[in-house]
């Protein structure tokens, strides 16, 4: 049996070795007290590598479902819910919003019209983009207000119905355009892209969830009765008529609601945080067709 008395009989070299072992033990157990928190090295990938990585992830997670099918959100992976959704599309509740949006689109704004800025309105495929001169992401809603400002009109409230109806009309006439956001190349564009990617992957709120927790790691699982959709395709169908809202709402309204659901204070609509997130999500959805407005629960 190993006892202290046995230790006393050890020769000097053995006791020195023993001392070193004990010292190492002390050093190891006390190390966490003094150690600086370790920071992993930068793990950055180009936007195209991100896009490949996330597409590969969904291909592995949903074998047999082409990535392009995620344009329909959770209905791509929930067959029964998809059938119900298609039946709803026979008499789509967003039609009224589209009609009202068309009327608004054709109403003069000061000395001009929306057509002066957006032609026939089929421009959703061009948004969002990174404006190098302004050094910020420009979304469709931001461009609508820019257009109004150009003709001396007050900007619309991003929470208001008018801007959502206008964007519903623009989304409708832009259907089937293929998302083709230019790969961020300048330093400023990459910063905005990475800011969006970081937002997407950061846990927040009291429930400690990141966007990716539900839509990457848990995509396809159920959250209560609903299946969690893949992030590729999230941006294709907005604005959406949400049965829960009983109205058409914007992508940023959905972002805000997601944040609130995990217990995080939401950001303002069209805030830089949400615009960068939209930029990131739209880039990774490159190649998918636009199919908004749509119906969601």
């Amino acid at each position: 049996m190993f006892t202290l008395s046995a230790l006393s009989n050890l020769s000097r070299p053995v006791s020195i070795i023993g001392g070193i072992i004990v010292f190492s033990y002390v050093a190891i157990i006390s190390a966490p007290v003094f150690a600086e928190p370790t920071t992993p090295g930068p793990i950055v990938a180009s936007p195209s590598a991100d896009r490949q990585a996330i597409r590969a992830h969904y291909e592995r997670r949903f074998p047999g479902i082409p990535v392009e099918a995620h344009k329909d959100g959770a209905y791509a992976i929930d067959k029964k819910a998809g059938e119900q959704w298609l039946e709803l599309e026979d008499f789509p509740p967003y039609e009224i919003a589209v009609d009202e949006g068309e009327d608004l689109f054709n109403t003069p704004i000061g000395d001009g019209t929306y057509s002066d800025c957006f032609g026939d309105g089929a421009v959703k495929g061009q948004y969002p983009y990174f404006d190098e001169d302004r050094s910020e992401v420009v979304t469709l809603e931001l461009a609508i207000n820019d257009c109004r400002s150009k003709f001396g009109q007050p900007t619309l409230d991003y929470k208001g119905a008018e801007i959502v109806r206008l964007s519903a009309y623009i989304a409708f006439v832009s259907r089937d355009q293929i998302i083709n956001v230019a790969e961020p190349s300048s330093q400023a564009a990459l910063l905005a892209y990475n800011d969006g990617k970081r937002f997407y992957s950061s846990r927040r709120g009291q429930l400690n969830f990141a966007c990716s927790s539900c839509h990457v790691q848990l995509a396809g699982n159920r959250l209560r009765a609903e299946k969690l959709s893949a992030s590729v395709g999230h941006v294709t169908h907005f604005p959406v008529y949400r049965l829960k809202w009983q109205d058409v709402g914007s992508l940023h309204r959905r972002f805000a609601r997601c944040n609130q659901q995990v217990g995080a204070e939401p950001f303002a609509r069209q805030s830089p945080e949400y615009r960068n997130l939209e930029y990131f999500l739209t880039y990774i959805s490159n190649g998918l067709p636009l199919n908004g407005p749509a119906i969601r629960k």
């Binding site: 920071t39 793990i43 195209s48 590969a56 970081r198 990141a210």
Partner: peptide, 15 residues
């Protein structure tokens, strides 16, 4: 730092 863990890793070639 943790946010990086919550995004799918890039394919080996693109690293």
């Amino acid at each position: 730092n943790d946010w990086r863990k919550h995004f799918p890793k890039a394919p080996a070639k693109a690293s």
